[in-house]
Design a protein around this nucleic acid. Sequence first.
DNA 1: TTGTGTGCAAAAGCTTTGCATGTTG
DNA 2: CAACATGCAAAGCTTTTGCACACAA
Lengths: 160, 160
Amino acid sequence: MSREEATEKARDLFAMYLEANKLRRTPERFVILEEIYKRKDHFDAEELYIHMKNQEMNISKATVYNTLELLVSCDLVKRHQFGKTQAQYEKAYGFKQHDHLICVECRKVLEFCDPRIQQIKSMVSGMFDFEINHHSLNLYGQCKGNCEHKAAQAKTESLA
Amino acid sequence: MSREEATEKARDLFAMYLEANKLRRTPERFVILEEIYKRKDHFDAEELYIHMKNQEMNISKATVYNTLELLVSCDLVKRHQFGKTQAQYEKAYGFKQHDHLICVECRKVLEFCDPRIQQIKSMVSGMFDFEINHHSLNLYGQCKGNCEHKAAQAKTESLA
DNA sequence: TTGTGTGCAAAAGCTTTGCATGTTG
DNA sequence: CAACATGCAAAGCTTTTGCACACAA
């Protein structure tokens, strides 16, 4: 699925979600969704807010946070806590689910996939009689070389 | 290893760490370590601070945070981010490493172990040429019953 | 028209910092 | 006695809230 297709689908899903929950289709909500789906990487609420301001868009922080919350609720956006404070976000629809590898030196965030995490989830779910909705797996470490990860990136892309 | 033995070992390790890093052996640092190793569950910095105040101990928040930081650095304490803000801590020496299952309804935190996480870490480490120091795996969901997890607790204890 | 959503600013909550004082090595 | 650690309070930073106005349904 191309980025454009994913964005279009996400827009439709968001509209349906809003309708189903009797929430309003405000321009702000769709502008924010649009901007998030233009992005490739992780971002935080502040960055998104600043970006809107730079575009001369009159969108408040309250609305940014409110909309992110809505988008997380309907699974169109994922929220992560890589560091101590500031949450990070990323688009979630139409892109392969993955986990994260964080370099504690350069703070770069890489993505990887491993099917074993699904097995762990099913097993734990059964053992505790829990319904597991989502998970967060972060590996922290440091790149051995010069914090250039291009070789590894290429490797995972070939696996995808 | 009993709780007392673990506490004693932790105290020694902390003393060695302080000496190795030319840091001072202040009473506050050891009182905090002691209190943490008395605890069975997760706690946050505020709880620890309040507890000290209730014991008529004159320990400031700054010292609580500073000491937690030191203890995390030398792996005697682990820091977790289960929710959005407030970090949670737990003692780490002499207790089996584990991951967490969080009920998003009652906020209860359960613990589980799975060897597959180690396999994932080695594989990703090799693939990205990364040195992985630690990880964080949290599963979020809800208990199907009444948020009583005693049966499951019993099951994991029998596995340990 | 009606009530939800928005912008703005202020408040809240967790953590860190600055400074004077105390205490370790 | 010379640094370093502490206590206290204030500041910092991210996120939430209150309120008046705007606008979607």
